[in-house]
Design a protein around this nucleic acid. Structure first.
Lengths: 361, 361
DNA sequence: TTGAAAGCGCTAACAT
DNA sequence: ATGTTAGCGCTTTCAA
């Protein structure tokens, strides 16, 4: 009497419809079959509430229709923006998204790449914090296609999408100078990270271009976080009361710095201007809204996902050489540097975050 | 000459080691074998760079070691907190996490539940925006274990973890009253969502408890977003210049409202106090830092993940009746209601977001 | 058009 | 202790 224990399979359907499993498979996959057969099979499938076993399909087909995105911590707004976009692109192409937080542990990052060999996902998008020689080695012998979001040496044969932090930082510093600031401090994250290093380079270059002096003691580099930004700003203001701007290597540092400024009863931007980087959701929610450099998190996510899907899709592209793309940075001026900046976003451009409920209950 | 085309399998290893595939499997799974055999197999596996095919293991074992988390939009800070926690718990138990954004489309939510039948993941954590009769039906005949984060009718046999928005909202309103506010407006999201409805109930109850009058026109309910909060606050202040507090149904609304207050040259909290809900990362990054009610996003994530893993693990628990848990809300007082509140977090409690780099380049 | 059968890579009886 | 073999659920030749 049917219902042989577990969930329905093509066998149960075949029995019920009185045909072979091959016919069931054909009908289910829209391959030719006699109308009569089609009807019988579809009916049986519906009655049994059949859902194809994706695992079996994967084993047979050799692809799981899953992509993996690995970054250090999904709590960072930059990654959130990427995940959203990657998930959207993946989904549109019929892929599911597997999330992997590496907690910035190198060994874990390497493990993710190696785990491509377990065939759990068809491809990987990796956001490494640093690139070590081991990364290069593991990446070049990965068991499946990988797209790196970050900077890779030119000769490594792996697709990559990168931000242009150097140019981005210059945009921000130039803007500060153009709006009359002369004593611009840098609040940075660790210098031994790629973003930390590059953003500092941009800062230095901009100062040089602008003919502004560089005061090594007007720089702080600790962690990329709110508390670090606040502490650094307090220290800098203690030592250099005449500073007129903080350029911060990311938005969290910038908001921490802003808190310090407020705590001292100084005004933003009148007394001190503050600019951040990443243009995360935090920037527009702040007061005053934070001027920031959009390094294209969303765009990088989209590009990375597309590149990966390209590798998976076109058989001809398979052997193509590694591709490199760079997202162009864009300065977003808001009230933290320009008192006249409109409070509401000038253009609609998909605010991000936005309008969900507070979730449940 | 080994290397039979594709990636190494137990067959390649067996050939290379000169043993049967069964022995290979045993060694690889740590089942008894002669030291000699163990050595040969391990050596061959290492030389070939063997990685077990997880898909094949899943097909055989009937479980994928994958969990799915479905919510409307990963851009919402509340969900970010949950994902982080769920991922951590899942990972510790050897599970991977599949992310699914439903974009608040009901049909999509239902589809996720049904798709449990495809055996792609072993269990599902679902955050529905609303619960429709269809949800109930689909949920009760799900092909695998589901834990709902949200409110479910008591008789539905599905595990659920819920927040206590009503109590949470009361906490906030009581706090506002205790600190001297009497004319407390409500800025809310859609009333036909569970959070929108419940948070309003808490607001009304608190007013009643406190003997404060309820002015229906001191309420606004539009969307759960920054822009909506700003607009609503401006309208309310236009109509009721004497308001002394905004209670907002989530942090984003609260930050939007704060912007409006600032734009009008009013001071927070001296002229007007602002309180939000969810205690997302936005709250502590704001200026002044935002008083908010922690509805236990992290805790709910953790509990949901644990419940799900329980269902998957213990064979004996399998038939247990549905369990319900409610996270206890907690008021977090900051500068937006209390001028004396410390700027830095009083206790360490895992700041959340925090310290990642700005990601790449 | 349809059915029988092979096989994706693995685990677990079962037999030796 | 080790080898042989039967599937897990599906797709896809290959014959009929």
């Amino acid at each position: 009497m049917s219902d042989g224990g577990g969930p329905p399979t093509i066998v149960s359907i075949a029995e019920r419809a009185g045909v072979s499993i091959a016919s069931v498979s054909r009908v289910l996959n829209g391959v030719g079959a006699r109308p009569d057969t089609v009807r019988k099979v579809e009916r049986a499938a519906a009655e049994l509430g059949y859902v194809p076993n994706a695992v079996a399909q994967s084993l047979k087909g050799g692809r799981t229709k899953q992509l993996t995105f690995a970054m250090q911590d999904i709590g960072n707004p930059v990654y959130v923006a990427m995940v959203r976009e990657i998930q959207a692109v993946a989904r549109a192409a019929g892929y599911r998204l597997l999330l992997h937080s590496t907690d910035a542990v190198i060994e874990d990052e390497l493990a993710v790449v190696r785990s491509l060999g377990d065939r759990t996902s068809d491809g990987l998008i990796l956001c490494p914090i640093r690139i070590t020689p081991e990364h290069i080695e593991v990446l070049s012998q990965a068991a499946g296609p990988v797209v790196v979001i970050g900077s890779l040496p030119g000769d490594v044969q792996v697709d990559a999408v990168q931000a242009d932090s150097v140019a981005g930082a210059r945009l921000a510093v130039q803007h500060l100078a153009e709006t009359g600031r002369r004593r611009i401090a840098l609040i940075n994250g660790p210098l031994d990270t790629v973003p930390g290093h590059n953003r500092r380079q941009g800062y230095l270059k901009a100062l040089a271009d602008l003919g502004l002096p560089h005061h090594p003691d007007a720089e702080r580099a600790t962690e990329f976080g709110l508390a670090a930004g606040r502490t650094a700003a307090h220290q800098l203001l203690d030592e250099h009361p005449d500073l007129d701007a903080f350029f911060c290597a990311n938005d969290q540092l910038a908001l921490g710095a802003s808190q310090a400024v407020h705590e001292r009863g100084l005004r933003i931007p009148e007394d001190i201007a503050v600019a951040g980087m990443d243009d995360s959701d935090l920037a527009q929610a702040a007061w005053p809204p934070l001027t920031s450099v959009d390094l294209g998190s969303v765009e990088r996510g989209r590009l990375a996902a597309r590149m990966l899907l390209d590798r998976l899709g076109g058989a001809d592209l398979e052997a193509t050489r590694a591709r490199r793309t760079t997202a162009v940075p864009r300065l977003v001026v808001r009230g933290s540097t320009d008192p006249a900046a409109p409070a509401a976003p000038a253009t609609a451009h998909g605010t991000g975050t936005g309008s969900g409920t507070g979730a449940s209950a």
